[in-house]
Design a protein around this nucleic acid. Structure first.
Length: 896
RNA sequence: GCGAGGGUAGCCAAGCGGUCAACGGCGGCGGACUCAAGAUCCGCUCGUGUAGACGUUCGUGGGUUCGAUUCCCUCCCCUCGCACCA
């Protein structure tokens, strides 16, 4: 045989055309509840990379598997088509973002088709078209009506050179430079639009518990991101400034609060800066919220500790962050590490007020906090009436007793600022009127379409004067359009709903159908979206459930975060120059090879190394399989054509023991592969499939195969491979004489369960290994004859009795059975073995099943040792041979 | 620091209470086929062993159990996420 491969280009082209002609991947609108399989839609950057190929091969394979199982399947694709790179590319190439984006889409769509991904292209969604983004605007209005939109000042990253806001990810390194022009980034206060995701913080957090089809890592990341913390808010009176609220999770330590600290941008700090030179100097020059060292300056103010009544000094300190808690904190150096460090630096008092839980009967002893804070819960000391309480009780009591104190919950999650000072996004549908302020564009005037692109340094929308000038929808007076566009995460927060009814003109999605079809059954994408995209999508889904009648509160039932495709342990990246181009692989080896190699290389969620060697051997495997099928099918087809009696040329062996072995292996493979496909562990399913292929080849080499059995095997292999290598599978399915597509073929079925399959295989494997052991250890040069002897029936009975029995004396119980007792010493010996293994006993196959399994596998021994092999029942051999025979372990006699 | 996930034979990597000296792949060794190479196929790949055995292994040290690679605890190391979060 050769490793020359096969003409993959011809095969792939042929079936891609056939699928296209037959509209094979169309999902009609009237199906009831299709299995919804979705890969995260890509940003159309120009070319597919290996990450895309892996992502979409996973969804495609799963979609095809479900379909062969008889499900209706929804498997759409679309484009996350807005975003800054298009603007940059347009500038570089002197074109415009729209043309550039559509070029990229076309290229990538062609590449996807070349990969054989079976999408319903009639449902394609492209977010940069007004037909799509009008619904972003409509949703913005709806959110606004439900009081989920807010306009307020926000600090943003601003590049003065590019004149635009940068996302946090676009600010690079410690020095905080713009990713494109290396200009130091500034912060600016800008009026921004926010979506109030924090209104849903509790539900978003609590529902994570029910997302059992999601990886734990993603669930945990979302929990951390939302960051809910229970604590208390309590007021400290600052002379001349009234009560100042501080948030704390440790109000039990309030007796140890020896100073108070304010964020540099706390309103009181800013007031102080106006008259206090030192404070101003600190705020303007020394405060470094990013530094490791806690810095601060003492003010002339004092605050009253509401628990002790003591006056404590007030600092302005840079480790106090205005967006954490209330931007003011009570500092307890005895029980907080950071406060401790700061107190040491400033020479403030450090008082222990919580002691470690004492041993029974002993009094709590205040810990030594001179060198380090004691940060755990314990028993209160030095805390007036509260001394002696445990931390938890003390927190409850103090929150109740202190007049200004109340329970409070803090979240790390912030509202979602969606304003972007960029061109290539959804225009925020707002008009600014001098008299009326910001006014939302009414529904009937939507969409607000993007004007022509203007190549300018700043925001092109700002430069589009004609577009910008408009009239106020409320008063009719002159007004200006909002020139900010929406974060592209808005687009992706609901695109999975648009696929349900992509062309719908009077709503973002068909509610009834969405209720039937949603949620997405299997979502697949990169871990980099663990928080943002997946959290925003959950948020949108919940809002749509509350206000638009969607009957689902979570968008994605099962989530798979796929691993990376690496090269020599490193992430592929352009800058490292270690990128393997999918295009090249497809040209050289074909799409099926690329897909099969990827799916068998590792479990989908794991990283794995690309290996050219692996790709070649995968390609060789497919070529060999093709040859096998052709060798079998071609002569039959020729005979059919010539009108002669069909005769399986060279495949007219009988349905003998070997055939039954192969038959059992076919069943075993199907049973295992089926379960593994269900789990998306394609690598294991494919390993089994390749093993079966090898078994079939061995079969054909060893003997004249039984045509029916052989064909059943080939047919099973082809269909088990079809989800992953669809083109070649179609070709071979066709060659095997089937009508219709393998895409629509029924998934092979097997009437065996895995437990049986595994017992049978283990018996055969163990027996073969035992024979090898004996031959080697006994130094048998050339075995003439091998007898494999199934244990006598009474031993199976004894085993069964032993498993069922809970008697102390097993041997006694066994001897209670006449037919066992009659075995005399043999029964006693075996009984002792059973007694010794008592706790570990397990049912084996029955004697006849074992006989059949061994008989059908005898050819393997014959072939390996070139010896006569007999499988026999116990009755046929001498008693002395039988002492080693047990259920699950035949006696072996070798003669040389 | 907090949280999550990991550490398995030369390498990659399954297993997650007994079927485990531990699936599979790569690499290495030997054999079949071939004039030869490649491909394919068959074995071996912790140690000892002239009949299927025994001994020592699954990051470290303990524990639970008749029995632990699998469960619990301690410590060490790796990867990821969050982090001066009150």
């Amino acid at each position: 045989m050769s490793d020359a491969g096969y003409d993959h280009a011809a095969v792939e082209r042929r079936w891609q055309e056939a699928w296209d002609d037959a509209d094979a991947y169309r999902t009609p609108d009237d199906v009831e509840d299709p299995t919804y399989v979705l890969g995260m839609y890509p940003y159309p950057s120009g070319k597919l990379h290996m990450g895309h190929v892996r992502n979409y091969t996973i969804t495609d394979a799963y979609a095809r598997y479900r379909r062969m199982q008889g499900d209706d399947v929804l498997h759409p694709m679309g484009w996350d088509a807005f975003g800054l790179p298009a603007e940059n590319a347009a500038k570089e190439r002197d074109t415009n973002p729209r043309d550039w984006t559509f070029d990229c889409i076309e290229t990538m769509r062609d590449q996807m088709t070349a990969m054989g991904f079976g999408y319903d292209w009639d449902r394609e969604v492209t977010t940069c078209t007004p037909e799509y983004y009008q619904w972003n605007q409509w949703l913005f209005r709806r959110f606004h009506e439900e009081d989920l939109v807010e306009r307020r000042d926000a600090e943003v990253n601003w590049c003065p050179h590019c004149e635009t806001v940068l996302a946090d990810e676009q600010v690079e390194g410690e020095a905080e430079l713009c990713w494109r022009c290396d200009t130091p980034v500034e912060t600016r206060e800008l009026e921004q639009w926010f979506l109030k995701i924090t209104e849903y913080a509790d539900e978003l957090l609590e529902d994570i518990d029910d997302l059992e089809g999601w990886p734990n890592s993603v669930r945990q990341m979302q929990r951390n991101w939302i960051g809910r913390q229970y604590g208390s808010e309590v007021d400290f009176e600052i002379e001349g400034h009234g009560p100042v609220t501080a948030f704390t999770t440790r109000i039990d330590t309030i007796y140890g609060a020896t100073f108070f600290a304010l964020a540099p941008d706390h309103p009181i700090s800013e007031e102080l800066a106006e008259e206090d030179e030192e404070v101003r100097h600190f705020i303007e020059h020394e405060a470094d919220p990013d530094g490791d060292e806690p810095n601060g300056v003492e003010t002339d103010l004092t605050a009253t500790n509401p628990a002790t009544g003591e006056e404590i000094p007030v600092y302005v300190a840079d480790f106090v962050l205005s967006d954490v808690g209330t931007g003011a904190l009570m500092a307890v150096p005895g029980h907080d590490e950071r406060d401790h460090a700061f107190a040491e630096k400033m020479g403030e008092e450090i008082v222990p007020v919580v002691a470690p839980e004492p041993e029974d009967g002993e009094d709590p002893e205040a810990p030594d906090v001179d060198d380090a804070a004691f940060t755990e819960d314990g028993v209160l000391v030095n805390s007036g009436d509260y001394s002696g309480l445990d931390s938890e009780t003390a927190r409850e009591r103090l929150t109740e007793d202190l007049e200004s104190a109340e329970h409070a919950t803090q979240y790390q999650l912030r509202d979602w600022g969606i304003s972007r000072q960029r061109y290539w996004g959804t225009p925020i549908p707002v008009v600014h009127c001098d008299d009326c302020g910001p006014v939302l564009v009414p529904d009937e005037d939507l969409p607000v379409e993007l004007p022509e692109f203007i190549n300018t340094t700043g925001n092109p929308l700002d430069a589009a004067e004609d577009w910008k000038e408009t009239t106020c929808p409320d008063c009719g007076g002159p007004a200006e359009r909002e020139t900010d566009t929406m974060d592209t995460f808005v687009d992706s927060s609901w695109y999975f709903l648009r696929y349900v009814s992509p062309g719908l003109e009077d709503a973002p999605f068909d509610l009834e159908r969405a209720n039937d079809w949603m949620p997405v059954d299997q979502y697949v994408g990169g871990i980099e979206h663990a928080v943002m995209h997946l959290l925003y999508s959950r948020f949108f889904t919940k809002v749509l459930a509350d206000h638009e009648g969607l009957e689902h509160r979570e968008p994605f039932t099962n989530l798979l975060a796929q691993g990376m495709v690496q090269l020599e342990g490193e992430k592929m990246s352009k800058s490292k120059g270690n990128v393997v181009s999918p295009q090249r692989i497809v040209e050289e080896y074909g799409a099926d090879t690329a897909r099969l190699f990827m799916m068998q290389a590792a479990q989908p969620e794991r990283d794995f190394d690309w290996s050219e060697e692996g790709v070649r051997s995968t390609n060789a495997f497919l070529a060999r399989l093709k040859e096998m099928v052709e060798e079998y099918a071609a002569p039959r087809a020729a005979e059919d054509a010539s009108g002669e009696e069909p005769r399986a040329n060279g495949y007219d062996g009988g349905k003998d023991a070997v055939a039954s072995y192969v038959d059992a292996e076919i069943d075993a493979t199907i049973a295992i592969a089926d379960a593994e496909y269900d789990d998306l562990t394609f690598n294991k399913a494919l390993r089994e499939t390749q093993d079966l292929t090898r078994t079939l080849r061995q079969y054909a080499e060893y003997t004249e195969p039984h045509a029916e059995t052989y064909e059943r095997g080939l047919s099973a292999v082809v269909r088990l491979l079809a989800p992953v290598a669809p083109h070649l599978a179609e070709e071979l399915y066709d060659e095997l004489g089937n009508d219709g597509f393998v895409v629509d073929a029924p998934w092979p079925t097997a009437e065996v369960d895995r437990d049986y399959v595994e017992k049978r295989r283990r018996l055969v494997e163990n027996t073969r290994e035992d024979v090898r052991d004996i031959v080697e250890v006994a130094g048998i040069e050339d075995p003439e004859r091998i007898d494999v002897v199934v244990a006598p029936e009474w031993k199976y009975d004894a085993l069964e009795i032993a498993i069922e029995s809970d008697a102390d004396n097993l041997i006694g119980e066994l001897m209670g059975h006449d037919h066992i007792r009659q075995q005399g010493d043999a029964a006693a010996d075996y009984g002792q073995d059973l007694q010794a293994e008592r706790e570990a006993l397990e049912r084996t196959l029955g004697p006849d099943e074992e006989y059949a399994a061994l008989e059908s596998a005898a050819w393997l021994l014959e072939r390996e040792f070139d010896a006569d092999v007999r499988v026999v029942y116990a009755e046929e051999v001498d008693e002395s041979v039988l002492k080693n025979a047990e259920p699950g372990r035949p006696a072996i006699e070798i003669e040389d």
